[in-house]
Each structure stands twice: as C-alpha cells, then as structure tokens.
Simulated scan of single mutants.
Amino acid sequence: MNWSLLPLLAVVLLGSCKFKAVVSSGSELKGEGITFQVPDETSSSSSGSGGIEFNGESVKAKTDGKTLTVDDKDYGALKSGDVVDLREKGKVLVNGAERSPVTP
C-alpha cells in the first residue's frame, strides 16, 4: 500500500461521516464572566467574549453576560462570577439557588 495515500483516504472516510458535539457530565462553558454547567447530552454550544449559547437535547440556554434565557424564557439578570447549573432537567440554578422565569 502506498502510505502517502493514507491521509487522503482518512479525509475521504471522515468527510463522509456526521459528527455531533458531545459534552460530558460536569462540563463548563464560560463567557462574559458567567459559567454554565451543562448536562451530559448531545449538544452544540458556543462561548466566549460574546456570551454563552448552549443547545442541548433537554435544555437551551444563552446569556450575553447580563441576562439569562432558558428555553426562550427570561430568567433575569446575571453578573460576572455567576454559575448557572443546567444539569438537572426542569431546574435552573444560579449560584446554587433555584431560579424561576421572570413574570412580565
């Protein structure tokens, strides 16, 4: 076998596969001074200076560093250093305290 063709073969085989981002239990996403603790499930996410966005199978959440939105509901203000725990289905914890959606 011509070994110089091996990288090309790997690219062709891997290029035909579909990949999903998988976040493991206890994973953290950080952005704008906020930390999201996210569940162990198939997901996509982005984090950095623009904030955090997490799209998982059981929960979708985002922040710009100032407000928290979970499953399209407003969960109020956040400040730098806050930790948002999204690992328990149906609950949103901020710094260990359960938080409910803001009522308009």
Rank of each mutant, 00 (worst) to 15 (best):
K79M: 07
S45A: 15
E88T: 14
E57P: 00
F36M: 02
T67P: 02
A21M: 13
S43E: 09
T103K: 13
K18V: 09
D40W: 06
S46Y: 07
S80P: 11
Y75L: 07
L86P: 03
S44R: 11
D71T: 04
S49N: 12
P101A: 14
E41Y: 05
F54I: 02
L78P: 03
E32I: 04
E53A: 13
G50Y: 06
S46W: 04
V83F: 00
D74S: 11
S47P: 00
F36W: 06
T103E: 11
G76D: 09
N95Q: 05
F19R: 00
T63D: 06
S46R: 14
I52T: 06
T63Y: 06
E57H: 01
K62L: 13
G51E: 09
T42H: 09
T63H: 04
D64Q: 11
S43D: 07
S43W: 02
S45C: 15
S45K: 09
G50M: 11
S80M: 02
T42G: 14
A97I: 12
G81N: 09
E53L: 10
D82C: 07
G96M: 04
D71P: 02
Q37K: 15
S100V: 03
N55H: 06
S80L: 02
K79D: 10
D72F: 03
G96V: 06
D72C: 00
L93V: 03
F36Y: 06
N95D: 15
K89M: 01
V23A: 15
S27P: 01
S24H: 13
T42P: 11
E41C: 11
L86D: 09
G96S: 03
K79F: 05
Y75F: 15
F19Y: 15
F19H: 02
T35I: 09
Y75D: 00
K89T: 10
G50E: 14
D64F: 11
S43P: 03
I34C: 03
R87N: 05
V70W: 05
V38W: 03
T69F: 07
K18D: 05
V92A: 02
D82G: 05
N55F: 01
S49H: 04
G51D: 09
E32Q: 15
G31A: 04
G26F: 06
L86N: 07
Y75V: 09
S49F: 13
G33M: 10
I52C: 10
D82Y: 09
D72K: 12
T63E: 03
G50Q: 14
V70I: 05
L68N: 08
S100W: 01
E53C: 01
D74P: 08
E53Y: 02
G65F: 11
K18P: 00
D85N: 12
L29H: 08
K30E: 13
G81P: 06
G50D: 14
Y75H: 03
D85H: 04
T103D: 05
G31V: 00
I34Y: 05
P39R: 05
D72M: 09
G65L: 10
V59N: 03
V59E: 03
P39M: 04
V23Y: 15
E28T: 15
D85Q: 01
L78A: 11
S80A: 15
G81Q: 07
D40L: 10
E41N: 12
Y75S: 03
P39H: 07
G26M: 08
I34W: 05
K73T: 01
S43Q: 05
K62C: 04
S47F: 14
S27W: 07
S49I: 12
